[in-house]
Design a protein around this nucleic acid. Structure first.
Lengths: 254, 254
DNA sequence: TCATATGATTTGTAGGACAATTGTTGACTC
DNA sequence: GAGTCAACAATTGTCCTACAAATCATATGA
């Protein structure tokens, strides 16, 4: 090809480069090349740079763009195919699949979605989804939890109360909700934990809670814990609904 | 390496080989090599051949086993990594991730799960999941459907009634439920369509319905269609609950 | 006993070569 | 002029080889 050596794009968010000079090859830390490439391309797709149905640049082009080997690009693309973001055929190339084939519940896709321009739409969808899932999941947990699962839930709930920093509290909060999903006894509910994780992680950025709010929220969590402990599905369902309503309200303020 | 040329395993379900002789290289039809390998390894993992935490054979070993190149194996493994079934590190190898990290809601993983030894557990989980999701999703659809979406739902419902063969009917049934999910106005619900698809596909194998059952089920579907058409969320919710109860009963008979 | 090197194994990355697939173009025929 | 068919070209698919990087295990030494 006669293509001139175009400026390669950096894969990771601009590492402060020691030796100034050439701005790429800045692969910095723990991430492997194919993972970075998958991340970058995936993000662009979800962000809308390449609308569904459109043909992506071919593998050689990506390799050139990122200054990596075609093998690495191919592995990245295979990862995106596994998430149904892409398909490809010889001579045609790779194209973006229609949006309703995307596996939006995938951890990575969700992350890309959460950081894309329409963050608010995302948050609203997730919160609505929680309204559908969590009351029922918690009711099931109240019926079927084992003692070990109960211990996990109680521990997380207590650590939430004792947390001294917001990140620490958020982490305990997440553990609390994930433990409930696991205790529901339905394996298919567990993967939805990524949704909740994502929701809480992004909520925590938005929200600066007052001390009063914190105490109130803690009380709501403890009500859930209690209902599960006493094996009262109906009470559990209602307690979760109250918590979600509270969260809705916090969101609405912003 | 001193490894003897061991018998390679066939990737696809035993093609009737013309020239008898060597039993592999039987890659037959439209599937690419890396996809076949991913399918085979994925199925084995979900089936339980390699329990979570255990180390898989290394890439070279897989390449030898399937008589494909290491590149193809790597691309397959990357696909499984994208579904969180695997992780890998240099020198250590690839290991199976804990079950609760698997993306069970992924189309492929779900298929592998559905064909694994514990099919019944799978079907029960899916049906329970439907109880959680579908009533609410349908209520939302009743509130937010557009006219185009309504047309899709009505068409599918009608075609269900007019279907002359069971596969044809199942297909229309699937389209009906997927259209409702899409009409719910919550993007995150759409990916759950794979669950319902899978459920109906596998239910249809189990069940041989009587003419009476068929008429009854059709009536239940039409009730749902009507509730959505008249924008009555509460009626829609109840209609779906009735349909699911009916399905439960059919399952219980077997 | 603990820290430190060093060795070996496995994945990670690169690059090149060719096969397979298939859209496109152009020639040929009716 | 329309339609059919063959040749071409572009792109992914597959294979191969070589080396780099990471890291576990072992041995070595203080």
């Amino acid at each position: 090809m006669k293509a001139e050596a175009v400026e390669a794009e950096a894969l990771l968010p601009a590492a402060p480069q020691a030796g100034s000079g050439r701005a790429n090859n800045s692969r910095i830390v723990g991430t492997s090349v194919h993972a970075s490439v998958a991340n970058e391309i995936g993000q662009r797709i979800v962000r809308g740079d390449y609308p569904p149905g459109s043909i992506l640049p071919n593998e050689a082009k990506w390799a050139e763009t990122f200054e990596v080997s075609r093998s690495a690009v191919r592995e990245a693309i295979k990862m995106l195919m596994a998430k149904s973001l892409l398909s490809s055929r010889p001579k045609v190339g790779s194209w973006v699949e229609p949006r309703d084939r995307w596996n939006l519940l995938d951890r990575d896709v969700l992350t890309w979605y959460a950081t894309s321009p329409n963050r608010e739409a995302f948050l609203i969808s997730v919160q609505e989804f929680r309204h559908i899932i969590e009351p029922e999941a918690t009711a099931l947990a109240a019926l079927r939890r084992t003692d070990e699962q109960m211990a996990e839930i109680s521990t997380a709930c207590r650590e939430m109360g004792e947390a001294t920093s917001l990140p620490q509290r958020t982490q305990a909060d997440t553990r609390f909700h994930l433990a409930i999903l696991r205790a529901s006894g339905n394996e298919l509910l567990v993967p939805l934990g990524t949704l909740i994780e994502s929701a809480l992680a992004h909520l925590f950025v938005f929200v600066t809670r007052e001390a009063d709010d914190l105490r109130h929220a803690q009380g709501l969590h403890e009500a859930i814990e209690k209902a599960i402990r006493l094996r009262r599905p109906e009470a559990a369902r209602n307690a979760v609904r109250k918590l979600l309503a509270n969260t809705d309200e916090v969101i609405a303020r912003v």
